[in-house]
């Protein structure tokens, strides 16, 4: 006796869009029931249910990943932008070679290097993201964790830069004012310094 052939399209959908977990056994179960007299519509119903279950699972998995990645990317980009802005401000305040060995300037340099490194890492992640898959065919978790590391480095660097800027502003503002001779932009205690010279 020849076996009844289940609807081809439903089978194809099950094979390609099915849940992935014990897919073969699920197919076998449906085939077995179909041979025992289940109708075509029953087979279709079961196949569509399998596709929907798989779809819902994918959406659930992807949604958390997309939200987390987008949030981290936005935060990292904001951190990088803030760091770059503070770095530019900090650079304006270094007006003599003596300022270069100032602890806050050294910290600024270290933070700037960390910022550049995290930027490079971030770009390399953005380019190669999602390409790795583990042996079960699921996307590897590492990019998200690495993105978190990038965010931590960026946040730390930006924080250090902001702190260094505050430190520099406290004592270099007067220096900047004195060595720039009024031509350079003056930050920090400008009114007090001007009042002192009068």
């Amino acid at each position: 006796m020849s076996a009844r052939r289940p609807p081809e399209l439903a089978r194809w959908l099950l094979q390609h869009l099915g849940p992935g977990y014990r897919n073969e056994s699920l197919e076998g179960d449906l085939f077995e029931q179909y041979q025992l007299g289940a109708s075509r519509s029953w087979y279709w119903q079961q196949a569509m249910a399998a596709v929907m279950v798989a779809g819902a699972r994918r959406v659930r998995e992807l949604l958390a990943r997309i939200v987390a990645t987008t949030l981290l990317r936005a935060l990292t980009e904001a951190g990088l932008l803030l760091g770059a802005l503070v770095l530019a401000q900090q650079d304006r305040q270094i007006c003599s070679p003596r300022d270069m060995v100032n602890p806050s300037s050294v910290l600024t340099l270290v933070a700037a290097i960390a910022l550049l490194m995290s930027w490079g890492f971030y770009v390399s992640l953005a380019v190669g993201r999602g390409s790795r898959r583990d042996r079960l065919g699921r996307r590897a978790q590492t990019p998200l964790k690495r993105m978190l590391a990038v965010f931590a480095i960026t946040a730390l660097s930006a924080g250090t830069l902001t702190w260094a800027r505050t430190q520099a502003g406290a004592h270099c503002g007067v220096l900047a004012c004195a060595c720039a001779g009024g031509g350079a932009s003056v930050v920090g205690p400008q009114p007090a310094a001007q009042a002192g010279t009068r």
């Binding site: 014990r22 249910a49 399998a50």
Partner: peptide, 20 residues
């Protein structure tokens, strides 16, 4: 639906409540 049964079985297996 059989797919729902398998989805539940997958969760149970992941939680260590069944073996396959």
């Amino acid at each position: 639906a059989l797919a729902s049964v398998y989805a539940a079985l997958e969760r149970l297996e992941r939680k260590g409540f069944v073996t396959a």
